[in-house]
Amino acid sequence: MSDAAAPLSAEPVNEDPVVYKKGLGITAWLGIVWLGFISVAAILAPFLPLDDPNKGIRNPKKLSYFQEGFIFGTDEGGRDVLSRVINGGSASLTIALISITFGTLVGGLVGLIAGYFGGKIGAVLSSIFDILLAFPPLLLALTLVSVLSPATETEPPTRFERILIVALAVGLVSIPILARITRANTLQWSQREFVMAARAQGAKPLSVMFREVLPNVVPAMLSIALLGVATVIITEGGLALFGLSVIPPDPSWGSMVASQIDDLNITPHVWIVPSVIIFLTVMSLNLLGDVVRDRFSVREAAI
């Protein structure tokens, strides 16, 4: 803790700044345990002995923590907050997983190509990212959800369709930023001696790209993708604020929080519980990201 209090200009203590423990470390384990727990809970939600997350009008409303057998209380509709937050996890995590996987695969590949090959290909691809990035992402996602789930039809989209639509909209919006990051890092690494050397030795461009450049770019991609998961979970909340996330009454973490915009001090537990869970999840993903990145430390030594 004394470290945290050290002023910025303090002379750093004389120790190697980059000592790495190769073990996972307790915090990383905690992160893994939390992510495992929340994922398993989300997947098993329908089989767990929980109240129906969408029913509650006959229950007492606005109960706080640990009242009348409700661990996290009930919301203004009398629904069990515990059950909603666990069931909401499946929507939020599905959206995060699909959109970031989609964004990382597409954005990563495009960025790698743009950065490694440069020249015309690079310029054209960069222009495409520019075009996508020039749209304010939240607004683009809002519009995409509206366009993809036409409300004109009397038949609204089903629960899963809507989750897919939201994931797709958020994923599309995240492609260009992931692509740009990958490109910037690829540019940097493509100019390094060991890559040049591999080229000079006559290795095929694609093989140099995947063998020499990609492993070095992965850490940056991974850390941005993991931050991306955080951003996606938050963005989902932004969409929910404008009513464009999951279809009610199905819960998601973002929509649980957003529904409280006018009741912040009336039923604080209803937004605090999902917010804390979002925090723990985002945090855990990050700790995990650190670990993965350390393990990936490929660098020049790999050559």
């Binding site: 955080a230 909340g237 912040l264 917010s275």
Partner: peptide
């Protein structure tokens, strides 16, 4: 910093 990220804007 992550606690602050997880805190919704409007809250």
């Amino acid at each position: 910093v992550f606690a602050l990220v997880a805190l919704p804007t409007f809250v």
